[in-house]
Design a protein around this nucleic acid. Structure first.
Length: 527
RNA sequence: GGCGGAGUAGCUCAGUGGUAGAGCAGGGGACUCAUAAGCCCUUGGUCGGUGGUUCAAAUCCGCCCUCCGCUACCA
């Protein structure tokens, strides 16, 4: 629950696994639902924790749907198979000698549980936490299980050094490496008092905490966040119930996470996996945040929060996806504003791309009686074919590097090239000459429009992971089949479709031009 | 405090030794297929400050200023 999807995170994730090369993919999103905080808030609402998280999950899933984000599984840490996975991971760590009973102590807020030392304030009346100033904090000592992270220091450092691509971008990797080098402490993985959590599967005596009737001994406590939330990745890959699936999906190719949880995913998590005899993920990508004007973190209390519902209402799902991923640098924090998004939408989607498609379909339909013209494919015959090869190469390279904003930029350079091509060739002049009986002009008109139609086909398909709802509408206007579902699955390997002239020889008729991205009036768009 | 990053046109940023760049925004023009879109041209910056190295510095070095990230159990 605390790691709910944010637009850039979820939208970015939703297209990274798209089957560009035809590989099978599995895409997870989900929620971390166990914590004292959640139990407390549910109690405030007078409902059970489960009812509380069920409601929130509904909102998250609705937000994903609105943005056309379609994971293969939305995993919840309250899912029964996840509970089994978390408990199995604890058992493995225990069997491996990596967990032991210790003592955890700190400031304890009766409402929220243990508080970080940096979150509490000293006052004349004693130490308080800012959320509940009227409630004095207690210094509490609790017997907990600890994970022996300290035992993995050398291996972690070696993993970072031997696999420079495993934690990215580089500056985040350096931060984490610095964290490791300052010395790793063990961390607690159970909580004694909490009841809203996964039952800790091992008792103080080292034996199972499960009773004969299948229930769990409450004295054993619950699993604390690290051995609960992080486990979701392997649960979603089939651990431990489906070894066949797990062998296929693990290690994960990519975790995309926010910078606030980098340490847990790049230091704790690999060590926990190794302790269980499993492999670390191949790559963890740490993205930044969308910041409001002035570089402030968005929050509802500050009133600078951008609501996904308003966002999609104004830009449409594809527009919202595009402006977010184009405007935000995926490797760092970025200041965003409603105005900047509107400018980006109008400039890139309405004016450049949408209008390119519109003028192309309009001219081809009018001048050639609706028959779809074929592109020139002889080497060197079409400048656009040459430009496309370069654009596609840059696009793919930047996608691989998770630089989504740069990837889009390379695609849009080609949009610009296509628009300049229109002005250079002036199809309307060629059409006039052709009508007057100039056969050479007629041939050239057909070639030029064929190239432009092909450029639109390629752009629509290449951008489909970003614009999954636009792509089928665009291809339909060009009279092309579109084989992909909203989640990118179903068709042939996308990369094979992206070569110039890949659909040469297939007949088709152009449909009526229909604007893909209506221009937004800056004044009328609500911010 | 320690480690790291950043400060370049109104905005977002690229640019690691050789006469300052892109996109957007602003201004002008020619055209007209198109979503008053596209295309061409253009205004605009003593490249945070300062001292130094060099024939030459946004680019290298010193110092200073400002901002940001990491510096473990809220996640």
């Amino acid at each position: 629950m605390t790691a709910g999807p944010t637009p850039s995170w979820a939208v970015g994730c939703s297209l990274l696994p798209s089957p560009f090369k035809g590989d099978e993919t599995r895409f997870l999103t989900g929620t971390d639902e166990h914590s004292v905080n959640i139990a407390q808030r549910a109690a405030e609402d007078g409902i059970s924790p489960k009812a509380f998280v069920d409601e929130k999950v509904g909102l998250f899933i609705a937000a994903e749907d609105a943005l056309s984000i379609s994971p293969d599984r939305f995993i919840r840490t309250t899912d029964p198979d996840h509970v089994r996975a978390a408990q199995e991971m604890v058992r493995r760590a225990h069997a491996n000698g990596d967990i032991y009973l210790g003592t955890y102590e700190g400031w304890y807020c009766p409402n929220e549980g243990f508080r970080n030392a940096t979150d509490v304030t000293e006052t004349a009346r004693g130490t308080i936490c800012p959320n509940h100033p009227e409630v004095p904090l207690q210094w509490l000592t609790e017997k907990n299980w600890f994970f022996r992270l300290s035992a993995y220091q050398e291996r972690l450092e070696r993993w970072f050094l031997d696999n420079p691509g495993a934690v990215q971008p580089d500056y985040r990797r350096n931060e984490m490496l610095g964290f490791i080098r300052q010395g790793l402490e063990d961390f607690s993985i159970s909580r004694a008092g909490a009841t809203w959590g996964i039952p800790f599967p091992i008792g103080e005596d080292g034996q199972t905490a499960q009773r004969e009737d299948g229930s769990w001994d409450a004295e054993a406590g619950t699993i604390y966040v690290w051995y609960d939330a992080l486990i979701n990745y392997i649960t979603g890959a089939g651990f431990p119930d489906d070894p066949e699936a797990f062998a296929r999906w693990w290690p994960a190719d990519l975790h995309v996470i926010g910078k606030d949880i980098a340490r847990f995913h790049t230091v704790f998590w690999p060590a926990m996996l190794w302790s269980a005899g499993l492999e670390a993920p191949s790559k963890v990508w740490i993205h930044g945040w969308l910041l409001a004007a002035g570089g402030e973190r968005m929050s509802k209390s500050r009133g600078n929060f951008m609501d996904p519902v308003d966002f999609v209402a104004a830009f449409g799902a594809d527009g919202a996806r595009y402006v977010t991923l184009r405007e935000v640098a995926f490797d760092r924090d970025t200041e965003v504003s409603w105005d900047a998004f509107v400018r980006r939408y109008n400039a890139d989607l309405a004016n450049d791309f949408g209008n390119l498609v519109n003028r192309t379909v309009s001219m081809a339909g009018r001048y050639l009686d609706g028959e779809r013209p074929a592109p020139r494919t002889e080497p060197g015959s079409s400048p656009l074919a040459h430009d496309w090869a370069a654009a596609l190469a840059a696009y793919c390279e930047r996608l691989e590097a998770c630089l989504l904003h740069d990837a889009l930029a390379s695609l849009w350079e080609f949009v610009g090239a296509a628009n300049r091509f229109v002005d250079a060739e002036q199809p309307w002049s060629l059409a006039k000459a052709a009508k007057a009986g100039d056969l050479e002009a007629a041939d050239r008109l057909r070639d030029v429009l064929g190239d432009l139609v092909e450029a639109c086909r390629l752009l629509g398909l290449a951008a489909a992971p970003f614009l999954p709802n636009t792509a089928p509408r665009l291809l339909a206007q060009l009279g092309h089949e579109y084989a992909y579902a909203a989640d990118g699955k179903g068709g042939p390997a996308l990369l094979d479709e992206l070569s110039w002239g890949a659909r040469l020889g297939e007949a088709g008729r152009l449909a009526a031009p229909e604007p893909l991205f209506p221009r937004l009036d800056v004044e009328s768009v609500e911010g």
